[in-house]
């Protein structure tokens, strides 16, 4: 109830204020929500966190990002919806900052992602995945699905897709199967996406792309920067904010907290 009330507000915001911060690049045809259960810390197996990842499918372009990032962006655009209390924490917690734009520009995948507070962007070829079909079939929520496997960014992935939904797309960068990906996970079960809902977009909403200034780079450099930060968060933070040196124990704590997220979805560039 609260959420839906708020979502209304958010969609209103997009219609009134979108041009300032985000540019429409396509019209949304379908919107899907995946539940993502992931293990942030490999040293604590079985300790899962949950997040939601959206998939907005347009005529030509599709976008995938976490629900909270989507909500946060919407709030930023809306400035303050008659809120008196500027000191309140009105922003949702964002665990994943990726925004994957498929076929934008044409024939490419553009990813926007953060390392700590810095926002990077890089492009990859559209044809990222080499899927191998298996003959295994199963029914998930009444939809006939078939299993396919691939190797991507250092993990082996198993996808269940449904040709009954002829949308060749999925969460994050995953796509390219002849039907919507209903469930996808890596063989270690570190990242597990499960489709929660998928439905046509009834409101006239657009696939939006950020207009903010980004740091252009390559995926290799991005993953290096991320690895670098995760391995030595203290050093990276210190270089940006030397006052932290006066608090060795809190620095150690931050480093420990960062070390609890040591399991990014992409382990290596191809």
């Amino acid at each position: 109830m609260k959420i839906s009330c708020f979502l209304l507000l958010v969609f209103f915001a997009i219609q009134t204020n979108a041009q300032d911060y985000l540019t429409p690049v396509d019209k949304i045809l379908f919107k899907g929500t995946y539940n993502l259960w992931y293990q942030p810390d490999t040293t604590r197996p079985g300790k899962y966190q949950r997040d939601k990842v959206l998939l907005q499918v347009g005529e030509n372009i599709s976008k995938s990002l976490s629900l909270n990032l989507f909500l946060r962006d919407s709030i930023i655009m809306h400035v303050e919806p008659s809120v008196i209390w500027s000191d309140m924490r009105i922003f949702p917690p964002v665990n994943f900052y990726f925004q994957v734009m498929k076929n934008h520009p044409q024939g490419k995948i553009t990813t926007v992602d953060n390392v700590f507070t810095d926002v990077y962007t890089y492009t990859e070829a559209f044809d990222l995945f080499d899927w191998v079909l298996t003959g295994e079939k199963d029914s998930i929520s009444g939809y006939a699905c078939q299993k396919a496997t691939t190797t991507f960014a250092g993990r082996d992935w198993i996808a269940w897709f449904s040709p009954e939904i002829p949308v060749s797309d999925g969460p994050y960068k995953f796509h390219g199967l002849p039907g919507l990906i209903i469930r996808i996970y890596d063989t270690d079960h570190h990242y597990n996406f499960d489709l929660e809902s998928f439905r046509p977009e009834e409101n006239q909403n657009n696939v939006l792309f950020t207009k903010r200034t980004l740091i252009p780079t390559t995926k290799k450099v991005f993953l290096e920067a991320l690895k670098h930060f995760l391995r030595n968060a203290a050093g990276s933070i210190l270089a940006g904010n030397e006052a932290m040196a006066e608090h060795p124990e809190s620095l150690e704590r931050i480093e420990r907290a960062v070390s609890m997220f040591n399991n990014p979805i992409e382990l290596k560039a191809e």
Binding site: S82, W85, R89
Partner: peptide
């Protein structure tokens, strides 16, 4: 009173 007006994510 802010429940339906000011979202909280905490």
């Amino acid at each position: 009173i802010l429940e339906e007006r000011v979202p909280s994510y905490q």
